[in-house]
Design a protein around this nucleic acid. Structure first.
Length: 594
RNA sequence: GCCAGAAUAGCUCAGGGGUAGAGCAACGCUCUCGUAAAGCGUAGGUCGUGGGUUCAAAUCCCACUUCUGGCUCCA
């Protein structure tokens, strides 16, 4: 049911588009060269697969021992030798039995050969003494790989064929580009990603923490992070009221009956925490909000005149995630969804979907995410619900996407068994895509809970139910937001909007006055009265990414003004206090960056 | 959960069987300062937790917890 897709999508989807490009061939060829190098250092190595991926390539090996970072250096050096030896990549088409003979010592290759269909051409690519079962294409000669344009990055474990029951192989990730300059740019971009990492900024800006002794994947929001969250929640609630939603609150635990009825105990149990016993009954902490919302729906007989109902809740849920997948704010075990359920008549579906989508896009725009792509998933093989309902739902999703001129990708058969959905992925400032919003139909819950409404003809009918989350979860959204803005939040979200900086101690009294004045005007302001030089205070404010630094010294005190320095380095000298307040309020109003 | 790596002061990190180290931050003193770091000093640690080896463990070994990069999962 609404498994609000809670997925880190860092893998671009442009891999296919790139498949034909030269860069792809270069990367794939570099993977071959790497495998060649590994084999020459570890002749007993078994090679598995080595494709090109976004930004680079990898190759999986079974090796007699674990690789160390020193090994990577050695492999790299070996690769440079191979590259400068100018070997041609030669394609040879061979028969199945020739292939089996050729790879008789390579069990993974044999398995791949067995997996090839009868009518498929079997080809190998050869360079130096290295042969690899491969469809190609490849570059002409190893010398086309610039010895200073590639780099091996990391070693990681990877199951053969992604199956955790099979051998764990060692995967070496590498990157390669057309020129050393492009490689440098790529490595610089990786550094920038590191600098923006929400886990680093979360600490530096004192936004949130986690506590080993209290449990992994559970987030503690510090005052500054909590202030930002409060501002987002406030905005979110107001927008929902404006858009015809009502807010509801529901409990955090519910009896087994609830989860049996919803079906979660059947198909979602491994993500739920163990039951707690209260008065001889089993209670479960909620992994989703929907069953609770449905109980509110069922608390009265519903007429078609009441529909559509749009009920939203900032619902905190807990889901078990395997220890290895937890990641900062992006993958956690307890989180608050900006959840809502829309319950409507079949006739209203189309308009409701369009409204949700429009609403969603408006919210994303406010947070300065403008590149958005939709992913539409349709009916899978196994599903519940009437075909006609599925068709209606899918067509309403399609129409909505079209009406907003959204680029979209169709995932035929990729929907959940209980209904089709649209997920929205947003692109952040670094061009990375994140899956955030989801709009899902549910044909299962209304059935299981026997939800009905009385229609105009006096007959009881089944309503449509739509789950949706716009931001996804506050934790994840916050993580993405931190990285999107690199911690320099727009003025309306900045936990501290301005800092008063007296140039020297004698001006602290005036600084106090300015502080009071701005506080009165509801600006989030602090005053840095530490016994530091002004430069040090500016540096500190700059590191805290405070939008406005209000410098006060002799001139300002005499004229009852402040001199503004923004965190972007712009200066506005001798601004009257009223004008200063006006300026900041204006920026808050516009929700602008600075 | 699996593979690999890691955990030392509030933060960033060095050290690597024999007295625990630096920079920043904190605190104190001096300086009274105009747009990204003034100077000096003080304090701060059961070296993630538990066990083992050893005359001696932060250091070596085992288990656990947590983190990092992947894998897998996310019907």
């Amino acid at each position: 049911m609404n498994h609000f897709a809670y997925v880190v999508s860092q893998q671009g989807e442009d891999i296919m588009a790139e498949a034909s490009s030269e860069l792809h061939a270069l990367r794939h060829s570099t993977a071959h060269v790497m495998a060649d190098a590994v084999l020459s250092l570890f002749p007993e190595a078994k090679i598995a697969i080595g494709p090109a991926i976004e930004d680079g390539f990898y190759y999986d090996f079974e090796l007699p021992r674990s690789l160390t970072p020193d090994d990577l250096d050695e492999i790299e050096n070996k690769m440079r030798e191979i590259v400068s030896s100018k070997y041609d990549f030669e394609k040879k088409v061979i028969t199945r039995s020739e292939a089996k003979k050729m790879f008789k010592d390579q069990p993974y290759k044999l398995e791949l050969i067995d997996g090839l269909s009868r009518d498929e051409e079997i080809s190998v690519y050869v360079h130096n003494s290295f042969k690899d079962l491969c469809r190609g294409p490849h570059i002409k000669n190893t010398s086309l790989i610039h010895p200073k344009a590639f780099k091996l990055l990391t070693v990681a474990g990877a199951y053969w064929r992604g199956d955790e029951k099979r051998t764990m192989l060692q995967r070496i990730y590498g990157t390669v580009w057309n020129s050393p300059k492009e490689l440098r740019e790529y490595l610089e971009k990786r550094k920038e990603i590191e600098r923006r990492d929400h886990r680093r900024l979360g600490k530096e800006l004192d936004l949130y923490s986690t506590h080993e002794e209290a449990g992994a994947g559970l987030i503690y929001w510090h005052p500054k992070g909590a202030r930002i969250r409060h501002l987002i929640e406030d905005f979110w609630k107001n927008e929902h009221f404006k858009n015809g939603y009502e807010l509801i609150y529901t409990p955090h635990i519910g009896k087994a009956w609830l989860w049996q009825t919803s079906g979660h105990l059947g198909f979602y149990k491994e993500n739920m925490y163990a039951a707690m016993e209260i008065d001889n009954a089993d209670y479960y902490i909620k992994p989703m909000n929907c069953p609770f919302h449905i109980l509110i729906y069922k608390s009265a007989l519903r007429s078609y005149r009441e529909l559509p109902l749009r009920w939203a809740e900032l619902g905190t849920v807990y889901r078990y995630e395997r220890s290895g997948v937890l990641h900062g704010l992006l993958r956690v075990r307890g989180f608050t969804q900006d959840d809502a359920h829309i319950i409507c008549t079949p006739d209203q579906v189309e308009e409701e979907i369009e409204r949700v989508l429009k609403f969603s896009l408006a919210i994303w725009k406010t947070f300065q995410f403008t590149e958005i792509k939709a992913y539409l998933a349709t009916k899978p093989e196994k599903s519940v619900g009437e075909d006609a309902d599925w068709d209606k739902a899918i067509s309403s999703l399609q129409k909505a996407v079209a009406s907003q001129n959204l680029p979209y990708v169709l995932d035929e058969g990729g929907g959940a068994f209980y209904g089709p959905k649209i997920d929205l992925k947003v692109k952040d400032a670094l061009g990375r895509e994140w899956q955030m919003s989801t709009i899902q139909f549910d044909f299962n819950m209304p059935e299981r809970f026997n939800m009905t409404f009385v229609d105009s003809d006096g007959r009881e009918k089944r309503p449509f139910m739509i789950h949706r989350a716009l931001l996804g979860s506050f934790e994840r959204f916050f993580g993405v937001l931190i990285e999107h803005f690199a911690g320099a939040f727009p003025v309306w979200l900045a936990p501290v909007q301005a800092v008063v900086i007296p140039v020297a101690l004698p001006f602290t009294e005036y600084a106090q006055e300015v502080l009071k004045y701005l506080r009165q005007a509801e600006i989030r302001v602090i005053s840095d009265e530490s016994d530091e030089r002004m430069n040090a205070k500016i540096r500190k404010a700059q590191q805290q990414k405070i939008p406005y630094m209000l410098i006060v010294g002799e001139n300002e005190q005499a004229a009852r003004t402040v001199s503004i320095r923004t965190r972007t380095g712009e200066k506005m000298n001798n601004l009257a206090l009223t004008d200063c307040v006006e300026l900041i309020k204006q920026k808050v109003q516009e929700k602008s960056l600075i």
